[in-house]
Design a protein around this nucleic acid. Structure first.
Lengths: 206, 206
DNA sequence: AGCCCGACCGAACGATCGTTCAGACGGAGG
DNA sequence: CCTCCGTCTGAACGATCGTTCGGTCGGGCT
């Protein structure tokens, strides 16, 4: 077995066990068993349990950010960049469901200073989304408004990326188109600041 | 101290501690301390730790469903019913942030059979949302499409209800109007089934 | 051959967990 | 007065947790 291969096996075992049981319920013994090592053998490779969670989070966020930057860079229009972001997130949720689950559920459980390092990468992801929306804005939205809109979008994506909606890669792409259409129309049309009540062109006169 | 008052104090102490620390990290000793009892005193009122989580979830979901039904019944149009749902959810998130956090984060941790009982109430809430969207649909969406749209909407709401966006009740109302406008435009305008690419009236000719 | 060192294991450490039990306290009912 | 019962407690139980330590094994180097 090549060196480092064991290490990869440990990280992926930790990802699987932590995703299924939650970080604090995932015992080091169970992770060691999933990785095919004894408990002491696991501690030969990692210093403490926190390091396992950090490894999973750090690698997953790096991959997600890499996918996002690659896919957004290929898009030519602001609309396509939004659709690329949505598609990237949903495809990541399909291909790495365990990792996304941990990112959204267990990211607060890390002790400092590793928690800050992960939080920075999460914020970097949020800012990518905010930049995409800013380029798309027609209403002169302020930064706080764009920030909350970004959270709305990511909330939508995470709400469906976790649950078993995505059974195939085609599902992910179709759902991306659906979410893209819905959010794009709403974001472009809605006047965000005023408490506008309903769509004016509803065919229902007051 | 009136009878039952202690019980209420225990439930609210459990809600606070579980929300802050997570269910499995919230020890029965800490909950007892927060309720002003000894550990054994807590067990005089509660059979096991699971019961504490169940009590918090059950009461919170009852209150959320009650609020929703009351507010939706007051609305006269399908659009207003959607806005009432959004406002109800965000106001619940503001007034009972601890409870909503537990509902969204710890609802899977209950053992059977209580887990099924809570899941039924969660599904009842989802179906309320699905019914509101069905009445609003113009595109003849199928039930699975309405189901995923409901999850999109609730994902948006939970994404912002958790984080410290809501600093005041006025914030909750303003954000409800913003979310309502955004989602309503998107839901009414988007053609959900086809993979429509971008808004056609963007002023950008292909 | 002798040696070293990374890989790995069995067994144990102290801490904390959920839960239980025998009993103390105090007021109500006889 | 005594007794009963609901309320509440200190102290402990066994289980499981994260972590550590002493030691074994085997292949590469000299």
């Amino acid at each position: 077995m090549a060196i480092g291969e064991r290490y990869e096996g440990i990280v992926s075992a930790a990802c699987s066990v932590i995703a299924r049981r939650g970080y604090h319920q995932a015992s080091t013994r169970e992770i060691a068993r999933a990785a095919g090592l004894s408990l002491a053998g696991l501690y030969h490779y990692v210093g403490e349990k926190d390091e396992l969670l950090f490894l999973v989070l750090d690698r997953s966020l790096d991959r997600l950010l890499g996918d996002l930057d690659r896919n957004v860079a290929e898009a030519r229009t602001p609309e396509d960049r939004l659709l690329a972001l949505i598609r990237t997130h949903l495809e990541f949720g399909f291909h790495h469901a365990h990792a996304l689950r941990i990112i959204n559920r267990d990211h607060e459980l890390l002790p400092e200073p590793r928690r800050a390092e992960i939080a920075a990468k999460r914020q970097a992801y949020l800012q990518r989304g905010q930049a995409v929306l800013r380029a798309l804005d027609r209403h002169g939205r302020t930064d706080p408004e764009l920030f909350s809109a970004t959270n709305l979008l990511l909330g939508m994506l995470n709400g469906i990326a976790i649950r078993p909606f995505l059974r195939s890669a085609a599902d992910a792409r179709a759902l991306a188109a659906e979410v893209g259409g819905l959010f794009l129309h709403g974001f472009l049309a809605a006047s965000a600041r005023a408490g506008c009540r309903a769509a004016p062109a509803l065919g229902r006169p007051a």
